[in-house]
């Protein structure tokens, strides 16, 4: 899968490592919570004829979190989908510049999406919009996950940019 020479969990600084650790623990906790939530709903419904009433709603929020934080973890461990047969065969100096171009394009995409999802969050906040469920969750709270998620992705992309600068120096 990975096409970088910096195999596995290469790090630009311990700060990034610590940050990634926090994200990893948070995402794992969300996944565990999702399992518990769904199982509780299933057990209560089938054994006690009761429903939590918010399992469907909160499951959706968990999926949002797993999507963006999970993608960030995949990006950092070089597991994000890539097609490498052309890239692997170009000279390494050009490779670094192509790699940087790709990082930059991904970064721009992330920043646009962070900006637009942040706008949505503020729109929901100013409209007082809430989920029409028993929890009445103010929607800006779960929607906040999106700009944060894209920011986390951006931070790991910046780390990749830093790593590529170091590589260019080594060459």
């Amino acid at each position: 899968m990975d096409i970088q020479d910096n195999k596995g969990l290469a790090s630009a600084s311990p700060i990034f490592d610590g940050f990634a650790k926090v994200i990893q623990v948070a995402t794992g906790a969300v996944l565990l919570a999702l399992v518990l939530l769904v199982c509780t709903e299933v057990l209560m419904r089938s054994l006690m004829n009761l429903s939590l009433g918010f399992a469907e709603e909160v499951t959706g929020y968990c999926v949002v979190m797993l999507t963006f934080f999970g993608a960030a973890m995949a990006l950092r461990s070089n597991a994000l989908f890539q097609v490498s047969f052309i890239y692997a065969h170009i000279p390494s100096r050009i490779q670094i510049w192509v790699h940087r171009l790709f990082i930059l394009m991904a970064l721009i995409t992330c920043l646009i999406l962070a900006w637009k999802t942040q706008d949505l969050m503020f729109s929901s906040l100013s409209r007082g919009k809430f989920a029409p469920t028993v929890l009445r969750t103010p929607l800006w709270i779960p929607q906040l996950i999106m700009p944060i998620g894209f920011s986390v992705l951006s931070i790991f992309l910046i780390e990749k940019l830093l790593l590529s600068a170091r590589k260019l120096k080594d060459l």
Binding site: G53, E56, P132, T133, V134
Partner: peptide
């Protein structure tokens, strides 16, 4: 177990001792 689409419907079902279920 009756599927409801709003908390208000849920209240109606519970009033008659049914279980109000939310489901996609």
């Amino acid at each position: 177990k009756i599927r409801v689409t709003s908390p208000e419907q849920g209240h109606f079902i519970k009033e008659f001792k049914g279980a109000a279920i939310t489901l996609s």
